[in-house]
Structures are given as structure tokens and as C-alpha cells.
Write a protein that binds this DNA or RNA. Structure first.
Lengths: 213, 213
DNA sequence: TTGCTGCTTTTTGTATGCAAATTCCGACAT
DNA sequence: ATGTCGGAATTTGCATACAAAAAGCAGCAA
């Protein structure tokens, strides 16, 4: 299912521009502060100004870029405090997520164990990039299992700050530190103990932050 | 300060369209499911299609409207479960907000008391509309005092669902029910007791939901 | 050197025109 | 009556053209 969300591979130009820019911003090819000029992007993507402007408006609503009238648009810069703020919110959201997801996972944690295993092997290999990918996937599984649309939306809205954080914290983080918590967390979820699972997950998030700070 | 956020009263056409549509959606003049056609809005607002499309893209990113390619855009419909979901997230966010805001309010709750008083008098008058306005303002004060950008953003993203909820729950709600909690909450904040304040605020939110459900 | 002045260039904001896709609706056959 | 087939009308998607604002720059004066 590599095409799009609307079934057929036909997606609007504005969407393609949006995803392209989103990719560049997320993986750092466009760093915070980088200028974005509409006609330049339009030419690169073989399109015109209109679709680019639509894409920019969307990215602006996602708080990834900032626009000043008649001055231009830039990739948003994020301060260390904003990163810490985002981690606090993430912890609060995942605290709720684990509580809500407990019902879903009770006696049904096979997939979750597999995901945690992927994180573990990446940690053993000291592969920080893979670790990041699989760890996010692990957390996302729990948030999705909570089956709460608003929760998932809020959680996803924090993605940019978290990406910046992991990019900045290149300094040797202890990838094994979170492992025990993961497995105990899964045990609690398997027992349907949402409260305890929530506390563990929130704790896991704040320690992850301290590693990157 | 009725003009705009960028200082001078000169704002782009796309922004004007966005705020106009936002107003219509929020106050129910455009009900969930209502169709929005680009050229029609453009004519109403004395502008062209481009700015309208930009505004729509922004509202789409805010999850207020849904667009299907070549089919059109409509005001998003929200299910009762989505409303409940939003209240759960709101409770989780305000639980955090109160904890973070405790430091700010410690020994400095005058403004908060005034806001709570406005809610109280509206409740005594049985003026449900004023009650809604002032109650939101009261909660917003706490979220803003938390001084956490991501938190405020997430909280504001729930506004649509909450508006729908209060519009649906026209049935005689007990406006006095939350009063005691408000004042006790303020007392705890004044003492700097964030944990207790958070629990009270979250509890306050879920009871508010049950009134509207 | 410093600071102003006016022009040129760059970039954003908006309008118009047209292509692409969908929906609507009536004619016609069964 | 029902269905379905084929244009016409509507609506979205995109490209081009141009206006408006800001930024940069050269030249000149103090």
C-alpha cells in the first residue's frame, strides 16, 4: 500500500509538495531556519505556485513552518524549552494512551512483544537510527491501540519537536536503558493493568528525554 | 486589539477567509456535513479561488473540514465517541496543565478568582452561553499559565469537538455543579499543590462531559 | 566612513483562464 | 416503470499573468 490514502495512486500536486517538504524537514535536509521560496519549490517539483502555497499553508497549520507576510516562510526553529515541553505533553498523552489501550492488549500482546524485540535488537547492534524508528513504532502501537482519534492526532502533532530532539542528542545515548521498562510495561498491559502501564510509559518518556537533553 | 495578530490591521485575504469560515463552523452557521464550494465562498468574500483554497487547506489541517479529491469539501461530522475521546484527552492535558501552572499561581490567584467569579455569576443567571464562554476562559487561563507551547496547541486543537458537545447538550445542565470544584482547585493552586489541583481539574472536565452526554 | 535616496530585483499575494473529474439530468430502450 | 447511456453543467485542480510589498544595491552627500 505505497500509493496513498485515497485508494488510487492519483494524488494532488499540493499533496505531493506537502509530503516532499515534510520529508525534507523531518530528516533535516531542510534545517530549522531554512528559507522556503514558493516559486523555487514550484520549479523543482515541476508545478506552479498555487499548489506550493496550499502545501505551505498546511505545513504552517501543522506548526512546521512560519510565514511572515511579504517576507517569506522558514522552517520553524525550536528551542530546547519547546523540546522539553513537547516531552512533558507526550508523557501525559502516553499515560492516557496506556490506560485506554490496556483493555485492547489484555492477553493479546504478541505484536507488541515483537515490536519491543525489534527495538531490543537495534539497541544491541547500537544502531541508533533503527532504534529510533522501531521505538517510535512501539510507542505508536500503544497510542493507536487506545483507539482515540483526538489522542492520536495530538500525539502525532509532537513529531517535529521529537525529531529535532533526537537529531540534536547525537551524543552516545544508552540504548539499553529503556529495555527493562518496555518488558515490564508489556507485562502490565497483558494483565490489563492500565494504571501501572501508564505510569511506566510516562516514566519511560521522561527518561528518554533526559537522554537527549 | 481587534485587528490581527501581526500587529497591523492588514491581513491576507486567505486569513480573512479562514477566520470567517472558522467563525461559521464554530458557531454552527455551518453545521457538520455542510458543503463548502470554493467559488461560492470566493464570491461571497469578494475574492478569488486561490485564497479560498489556501484557507480550506489550513482548516483541513486543523481537522475542521474534510476534502475528497474532485468531490468537494464538507464540515467534518463528529460522532459521540469522538466527543468522548476529546474529553478524555482534554482531561489528561489539563491534569498536566494544572501541575505545571501551580508554580505560576502560587500565592497569585487573583486573576483566576476573578475568572471563576465570572463563571459563577453566569451560572446564577442560568445564562448557558455566557457560562460556556467564561468557563472556557477559566480553563484557558490555567493552560496558558502552564507556559507550554505544545500543551496549549494540543488543547486548542480540541476546541471543535468541545463546541459540538456543548451545542448538542442543550438539555438543562446543572451550571452550579462545577462551582465547588473551581474554588477548591484555586485554593490548591494558591498553595502550589499542583498534583491535587491537577486531579481536581481533570475530574472537573470529565464531569463536564457527563453533563453534556 | 556613514547615512540617506531612489531604483532595481526578488518574493509574496491575488486574479483570470482553462483543463480534468464528477455529478446531474433527460432521452431512449427494455 | 425502470434502467442505462450520453451529453451538459458544476466543481475542483492547476498554470499563467500581474499587482503589491519588501529587500538589496548603487550612487551621492555630509
Amino acid at each position: 500500500m505505497a500509493v496513498s490514502k485515497n485508494g488510487i495512486g492519483r494524488q494532488s500536486m499540493a499533496d505531493r509538495v506537502k509530503h516532499e517538504l515534510l520529508g525534507r524537514i523531518m530528516d533535516g535536509r531542510m534545517a530549522p531556519g531554512a528559507r522556503i521560496v514558493e516559486l523555487q519549490i514550484a520549479e523543482e517539483m515541476q508545478t506552479s505556485q498555487g499548489p506550493v502555497r496550499e502545501a505551505l499553508r498546511e505545513l504552517e497549520a501543522m506548526d512546521l513552518i512560519v510565514t511572515e507576510p511579504y517576507k517569506g516562510t522558514r522552517v520553524r526553529e525550536v528551542t530546547p524549552k519547546e523540546i522539553e515541553d513537547a516531552y512533558d505533553v507526550r508523557a501525559a498523552l502516553e499515560l492516557l494512551a496506556a490506560q485506554l489501550a490496556a483493555k485492547h492488549f489484555k492477553g493479546n500482546v504478541e505484536d507488541l512483544r515483537k515490536a519491543a524485540h525489534a527495538v531490543l535488537t537495534a539497541a544491541k547492534r547500537k544502531d541508533a537510527r533503527a532504534y529510533g524508528t522501531y521505538d517510535v513504532r512501539f510507542h505508536r502501537m500503544i497510542v493507536e491501540a487506545a483507539n482515540n482519534r483526538a489522542l492520536l492526532r495530538s500525539w502525532e502533532a509532537l513529531a517535529y519537536e521529537l525529531r529535532i530532539a533526537t537529531r540534536l542528542g547525537k551524543g552516545h545515548v544508552d540504548l539499553m536503558a529503556a529495555q527493562d521498562v518496555h518488558w515490564h510495561l508489556i507485562d502490565e498491559l497483558e494483565k490489563g493493568n492500565g494504571k501501572a502501564a501508564g505510569r511506566m510509559l510516562a516514566e519511560n518518556v521522561v527518561t528518554a528525554f533526559h537522554q537527549h537533553s
